[in-house]
Design a binder for these strands. Sequence first.
DNA 1: ATGAATGCAAAAACTTTGCATGACG
DNA 2: CGTCATGCAAAGTTTTTGCATTCAT
Lengths: 135, 135
Amino acid sequence: MQGLRKAGLKATLPRMKILEALQSSKQKHFSAEDVYKMLFKKNEEIGLATIYRVLTQFESAGLVMRHNFDGSHAVFELNDDSHHDHMIDIDSGAVVEFYSEKIEELQKKIAAEHGYEVADHSLVLYVRSKKKKPK
Amino acid sequence: MQGLRKAGLKATLPRMKILEALQSSKQKHFSAEDVYKMLFKKNEEIGLATIYRVLTQFESAGLVMRHNFDGSHAVFELNDDSHHDHMIDIDSGAVVEFYSEKIEELQKKIAAEHGYEVADHSLVLYVRSKKKKPK
DNA sequence: ATGAATGCAAAAACTTTGCATGACG
DNA sequence: CGTCATGCAAAGTTTTTGCATTCAT
């Protein structure tokens, strides 16, 4: 509601519902369809096209971040202004967030060595639990 | 040709043409359509569906690696068995490869701290040249 | 000869867009 | 009230798939 105005977006019902859905869910990463279904269950039927449009606007406004973990579909996450990378459990699909100052530094250093500066980066670890599954 | 047999793939004309195209190009990263057009120019018209099928088989066989730099389409690169990550110049689209032992180590360490082991990872730096563009 | 590979066109999955209607400021 | 947002359906992209035909061994 206020976040929307601050972001320069008119406070419409769909936008408020979507933002609230993102904020109130225990989940942190959502595909457009996740959001759609989530709202659908609450009997807030918002067209999928609107979800896409709104999420894209939220992204431009810096309210959410878009990730492409697997290339087949985008996932969105609220932008809490604390940068972090992701670790995805390839068996369960669970997503763990992490942050490493050292890796960030190394990235800058390596880019600099090539005459570049880092504008953005994407780091995803595909991991497997170390605990052996009981046979 | 021999690489194909070793990979357990029948040496068909389309597969040979595609492999050769990948090997003989100065370019290192190709979308399926890049490969299609490349062959088309050489008057080797291979159906796009076949390109996709073959590249996927090559990936399974370990001959190529698939990347999803931007989420909108996949790119393939010959697998030279030397792991590296990528840096993409957001202005020119140029792709630079790099490798950092330290970053690799840190990734393993961080995963381990969460009870995981790294099965794979994807690191892409989106960079911008440090040289100021003359106004 | 025979099982696999190809080509084509159709389908699928995800996302964007055009346009008429409705809502916000 | 004028403008911008929404919904719906249609179109766009990229990738996959079914099926008849052709190819490799």
